[in-house]
Measured scan of single mutants.
Amino acid sequence: HAATELTPEQAAALKPYDRIVITGRFNAIGDAVSAVSRRADEEGAASFYVVDTSEFGNSGNWRVVADVYKA
């Protein structure tokens, strides 16, 4: 099962156990969220919340930071 994305309210009520950072070329924010979901799932997380997204220069590469939560 894939890790689910939390709302800001849900994330605020929970304590993350880790923070992950992924970088890559994403065509849309949805693609980045899917990549975070896969990584969170690999780490055994039940859910995640994207904290920050930023573009690296003009290369089209993105850096996505997310907190991950157990259950």
Rank of each mutant, 00 (worst) to 15 (best):
T7Q: 05
D41I: 15
D31K: 04
V68P: 02
V36E: 02
G60L: 06
L14F: 08
I20V: 06
A45V: 03
F56K: 05
N61V: 15
A71R: 09
N27P: 09
T53P: 02
N27A: 13
V64K: 00
D52W: 13
S47D: 03
R39G: 01
D18T: 12
D18A: 15
G30M: 11
K15C: 14
Y17C: 08
D41W: 15
A32T: 04
R39H: 06
A40M: 04
V51L: 07
S54M: 14
T4G: 06
N27L: 12
P16Y: 04
K70H: 13
A11R: 05
G30I: 12
R25Q: 11
A35Q: 06
D18K: 15
V51S: 02
A35E: 10
S47A: 14
E42F: 10
H1Y: 09
A45N: 03
K15P: 04
S59V: 09
F48W: 04
T4C: 14
N27K: 12
Q10Y: 04
G44L: 03
D18Q: 12
T53V: 15
I29N: 04
P8C: 14
A28H: 14
E43C: 14
S47P: 02
A66E: 01
R38D: 04
A3D: 02
G60V: 05
N61H: 13
A40K: 01
V33W: 09
N58H: 12
A3N: 02
A35L: 06
H1A: 09
A40H: 01
T7L: 07
E5P: 08
Y49I: 08
D18H: 11
V21H: 05
V64D: 02
D41L: 15
A66Q: 01
F26C: 05
K15M: 11
L14R: 11
R63N: 05
A46W: 13
D52P: 02
E9S: 10
Y49D: 01
N61W: 15
F48Q: 00
A3F: 05
A32D: 02
S59P: 11
Q10P: 02
Q10I: 06
Q10M: 09
R39Q: 07
F26D: 00
H1F: 09
F56N: 08
R38I: 12
D67S: 04
V65I: 12
V68K: 02
I29G: 04
A11V: 04
S47M: 13
A66C: 06
E42T: 07
E43K: 11
E42C: 11
Y17Q: 01
G44A: 04
D31G: 05
S37A: 15
G57D: 13
R19L: 04
E5S: 09
F56Q: 11
I22H: 01
A3M: 06
R63A: 06
F56W: 11
A13Q: 13
A11N: 02
F56H: 08
L6R: 02
S54N: 09
V65T: 09
A28W: 10
V64F: 03
V21M: 07
A35F: 06
A2W: 12
L6H: 02
D31L: 07
R25N: 10
R38F: 07
D41M: 15
V64T: 01
V21I: 12
A3E: 02
I20G: 00
P8R: 14
H1M: 08
A45F: 14
A71S: 12
A40C: 10
K15S: 09
P8T: 13
R39F: 09
D41F: 15
V21G: 00
I29R: 13
T23K: 06
S54F: 14
D41S: 15
E9W: 09
Q10L: 08
D52A: 13
T23P: 00
V68N: 00
V50P: 02
V36F: 00
F26V: 01
V65Q: 02
D18I: 12
V68F: 15
S59A: 11
K70V: 08
K70G: 09
D67V: 08
G57K: 07
A71P: 11
V51G: 00
G60E: 07
A46S: 12
G57M: 08
V36S: 02
R25P: 09
Y17K: 01
I29L: 12
A28P: 04
S54T: 14
D31H: 05
E42V: 07
T7R: 07
D41G: 15
D67G: 01
Q10C: 13
E9D: 11
V68A: 01
V33G: 02
S59R: 07
